[in-house]
């Protein structure tokens, strides 16, 4: 479970909360547009050690069936995962 993007993204005057308190983890926008480079996982090299998952400042990496998976909606392309990956399973590639 993690905060996720909701369908309802704008709030009219009547819909704005009555106080400065609202549902935790309510997202309306992604961060993918920030990226100039993207991490790409080489599944053959990935050993599922979870170092990338641990050190990702945005928490966008999870390990599924022993392999790292990236949520590209929220990855900012910082490259920390590629640096931390000992087997060299993550390569940064230019966004097109």
């Amino acid at each position: 479970m993690r905060p996720y993007v909701r369908d309802k993204k704008t709030f009219s005057i009547d819909e704005v909360p009555v106080n400065t308190s609202f549902e935790a983890g309510y997202l309306v926008s992604v961060n993918s547009g920030w990226r100039s480079i993207r991490p790409v996982i080489n599944s053959t090299k990935c050993v599922g050690c979870e170092q990338c998952y641990l050190y990702c400042p945005d928490g966008v990496i999870s390990v599924c069936d022993g392999k790292a998976v990236i949520d590209y909606d929220f990855c900012k392309g910082c490259g920390i995962c590629a640096k931390i990956c000992r087997p060299g399973a993550i390569r940064m590639e230019a966004e097109r």
Partner: peptide, 12 residues
Amino acid sequence: EEFFYGHKACAG
């Protein structure tokens, strides 16, 4: 679980 997600902090 991820408790801090989708934030707009600088990359890295």
